[in-house]
Design a protein around this nucleic acid. Sequence first.
DNA 1: CCCTGATTCGC
DNA 2: GCGAATCAGG
Length: 244
Amino acid sequence: MSWTDERIEKLTKMWEGGATASQIAEELGGVSRNAVIGKAHRLGLKARPSPVKANDKSEAPAAAAAPKPAKPAAPVAATPVAEARPAAPKPAPAPAPVEARAAPVAPPRPAPAAPPPPPASAAPAAEPAAAPTPRVVSVGPGGFLRQGPGDQQAPIPPAPPRRLVPARPSPEIADKTSLLDLNDRICRWPMGHPGEPDFHFCGEKVNPGFPYCVEHCGRAFQAQLPRGHRRPPPPMPFGGPRVR
DNA sequence: CCCTGATTCGC
DNA sequence: GCGAATCAGG
C-alpha cells in the first residue's frame, strides 16, 4: 500500500480528530500502526499526548541539550486534548492530605439526564477543597459506611435492613436498544457514549443489507465527492473523540 | 499482559 | 520516504 493523497488525507483527519494510530491503521487497511505513526510524524502532525513522553522536563542544562528543534506543531486546529502545559512554574506538588471525602450513600440510579460532556479541561483550577478533617470513609455493599482507620465510632451500625437486589436498568434506558438487543435487523448506530447511563443504540429497522438504518447509512456511508466541494465531515460515531 | 505514541535505523 | 523493531509510560 502506498500513501495516496486520499489515504494521507484520511490519516490526517483521523489523527487530528483524536483517533489512535491503531484505529487509523485499521481504517486505512494495509498498513500497520507503526506505519501510521511514522507517516504522521513525517507529515509533521505530531503533538498528541504520548504515554511515554508525558513528562515535561524543566530545563535540562545537563548533557540533555535536546538538539530537537521542537517542531511548532503546525496550526493544529482544535486538539481535543487538554494540553495545558505551562512548563514553567512547577511548584512542588501539593502534598495533598489523604484525599478523603465523606462519601454519601450513592443513589442507586444515575442522574436522570445524561451529563453534558465535560469541558476540555476537566478541572483546570484545582479546587483546594481541603477537607479540614480528613477521614477515610468507604461505602460497603448496602450503603453502610465502613469505619476509617482513626475512626473509633463505637458500635457497628446495624445491618442495613434492605437486601441487595440485582441492579436494574435505569428507567431512562429501559425502552432503549441495548447491546443485547442488537441483531441483524436493527440499526446498531451508537447513541451517546459507551459507559454513560443512557448509552444505547439506534434500534431502527436496518436498511436491508446494511448494519444501520437508512438515516445512519447516510452518515456511515458517504459518496466521495470531488475534491473542492466536499462537505465538512459528519460527526463521528460516539460523537467523536471523547473529550476528557 | 494489554494498550498507547516516539524514536531509531536499515532499507 | 517507508515501516519494523524497539522503547517506555499507562
